[in-house]
Amino acid sequence: MASAKKQTQVRLDENALEAGKAAARARGLDFNKYVERLIVEDTTGARAAGMAAAQRLIDEHGAFLDDLEQELDAPYTASQPGVAA
């Protein structure tokens, strides 16, 4: 059985609200679900664990990822006038 949802009201700056709605759309979520997910991730440690994992990936493979990015960008930067390859 699903738990009952409670309703609350939050006042947000217009820019923060629009950014939140855009982020929700980008993730295929409605705004309420997006806010709920942010709260759950923040209060359970899931967000911190994800950020720590991302940092480990960058620390361990950052040079490889930088090289790969340059390699993938090379055909585009070489064809642009005035851009050194």
Results as ranks from 00 to 15, higher is better:
45 G>W: 06
34 Y>E: 05
38 L>D: 01
81 P>K: 14
37 R>I: 10
75 P>Y: 07
1 M>D: 05
45 G>Y: 08
22 A>I: 01
1 M>W: 03
62 G>V: 09
24 A>D: 01
69 E>V: 04
67 D>Q: 12
74 A>V: 06
39 I>D: 02
7 Q>N: 07
67 D>I: 07
73 D>G: 02
51 M>W: 05
26 A>D: 14
63 A>L: 10
22 A>N: 11
26 A>Q: 14
37 R>M: 03
60 E>V: 04
47 R>G: 03
56 R>S: 10
14 E>D: 14
50 G>N: 05
28 G>V: 08
24 A>F: 04
54 A>M: 15
22 A>M: 04
63 A>D: 06
28 G>H: 06
43 T>R: 12
15 N>G: 11
18 E>N: 14
21 K>V: 07
8 T>C: 07
21 K>E: 08
85 A>N: 06
42 D>S: 15
58 I>A: 09
29 L>F: 01
7 Q>W: 14
76 Y>A: 05
76 Y>V: 06
79 S>G: 08
84 A>L: 08
62 G>F: 02
58 I>D: 12
30 D>A: 03
33 K>C: 01
73 D>A: 15
83 V>F: 12
41 E>M: 10
9 Q>N: 11
58 I>W: 14
70 Q>I: 01
24 A>P: 09
77 T>N: 07
28 G>N: 14
27 R>D: 15
20 G>L: 02
51 M>F: 09
83 V>S: 07
25 R>D: 11
85 A>L: 08
26 A>P: 00
44 T>Q: 07
27 R>I: 00
56 R>E: 12
36 E>I: 09
81 P>H: 05
6 K>M: 01
83 V>L: 13
69 E>G: 10
79 S>R: 15
60 E>S: 15
61 H>Y: 09
15 N>L: 06
8 T>P: 00
51 M>G: 02
66 D>A: 11
5 K>Q: 07
6 K>Y: 03
79 S>W: 02
23 A>N: 02
34 Y>T: 00
6 K>F: 08
14 E>F: 02
75 P>H: 02
41 E>N: 11
38 L>A: 04
4 A>N: 03
26 A>T: 00
56 R>F: 01
18 E>Y: 13
67 D>T: 10
69 E>I: 02
10 V>H: 05
52 A>N: 09
36 E>F: 01
17 L>N: 06
23 A>H: 03
6 K>V: 03
8 T>D: 00
22 A>S: 11
